[in-house]
């Protein structure tokens, strides 16, 4: 390592540490796991956003990604399985000055929490949802998720999955999300930028990050280690901004469409609409001052 590289590494480490609870290290994630990479991007993103860290709350559900909340030095809430979004709904509505970011996994957000996900998007609730998609339930040992590509193997589908998987950008888009992007753990700069945009967006913003789970999904499907997976993402990602989200399905070992797909302006967020309603009621003398 050259001195310049070492200095750069040192600088990166010290910056990240500001945002991380070092007294909670070491973390639980496996070598080659992509979650840590996304957290690194997130710490850069919140730094770039210039948001007051005392006014930024992070909410997670249960699972490997669910542990993110516990490692970030912010007001952090590690809730129940699938229910991070409704918790965040209460937090944001009762304390609108907070920026509320959801950080959770595909199983948590989209399977058990799927109902809350679609309704939060429909409401255009003022939160950011970051979904780390590693194609399986990792914390419990590699079971299939609604995101596991058809024909891939998991412990609960040892002969391959017969169900179609969710296309998350399409799901978010069709339910009304005003910002939708997808990147992989390889695309750290693009991901960071997407996180900045999502956090600064008013309304329901959604970022999906495809990450490797070398211990379970990659190993069981014989897809190589974390590094091999980065190379695979590099070769097989197709960057297509503004792509029609209907065309963002992920097949087993198929191309991964990445980019910013949705970035709508002028759609009133839930809080904007509520504030407007309250103002109307105030004029009529119904709402209190």
């Amino acid at each position: 390592m050259t001195q310049a590289t070492a200095d750069a590494c040192e600088q990166i480490t010290s910056k990240t540490e500001e945002f991380v609870r070092s007294d909670r290290m070491p973390h639980i994630w496996c070598p080659g796991c992509g979650i840590g990479t996304t957290v690194n991007c997130f710490t850069r993103a919140i730094e770039q956003c210039g948001v007051d860290l005392n006014k930024l709350a992070i909410v997670s559900g249960i699972g490997c990604t669910g542990r993110v909340a516990g490692y970030l030095n912010l007001d952090s809430f590690h809730t129940t399985h699938g229910r991070a979004i409704p918790f965040a709904t209460g937090l944001k509505l009762s304390n609108p000055d907070l920026k509320v970011v959801l950080y959770s996994g595909d199983g948590d957000l989209i399977a058990i929490g799927g109902n809350h996900f679609i309704h939060a998007a429909r409401r255009n609730l003022d939160i950011t949802v970051i979904c780390v998609n590693n194609f399986n339930y990792a914390m419990t040992g590699g079971q299939v998720a609604p995101t596991t590509p058809i024909d891939a193997i998991g412990t609960t589908a040892p002969y391959g999955v017969c169900e179609r998987s969710f296309n998350l950008p399409f799901l978010a888009d069709s339910c009304g999300a005003v910002y939708v992007a997808r990147w992989t753990a390889f695309h750290v700069r693009q991901l960071t930028k997407a996180m900045v945009e999502a956090v600064n967006k008013r309304g329901f913003s959604f970022v999906e990050v495809i990450t490797p789970c070398p211990t379970l999904y990659e190993r069981r499907n014989r897809l190589g280690d974390g590094l091999a997976r980065m190379e695979w993402y590099k070769e097989n990602s197709v960057i297509k901004h503004d792509a029609d989200t209907r065309e963002c399905d992920i097949d087993f070992q198929g191309k991964i469409v990445c980019g910013k797909f949705v970035d709508k302006e002028d759609v009133p967020s839930l809080l904007q609409k509520r504030n407007q309603k309250t103002e109307e009621l105030r004029v009529k003398g119904i709402a209190c001052d």
Partner: peptide, 18 residues
């Protein structure tokens, strides 16, 4: 909310919001 599961934890988010 969309169901009672949601309602029962939305209120707790609200409590931690004050």
């Amino acid at each position: 909310m969309e169901d009672e599961i949601a309602s029962s934890i939305t209120i707790q988010g609200a409590v931690w919001g004050g």
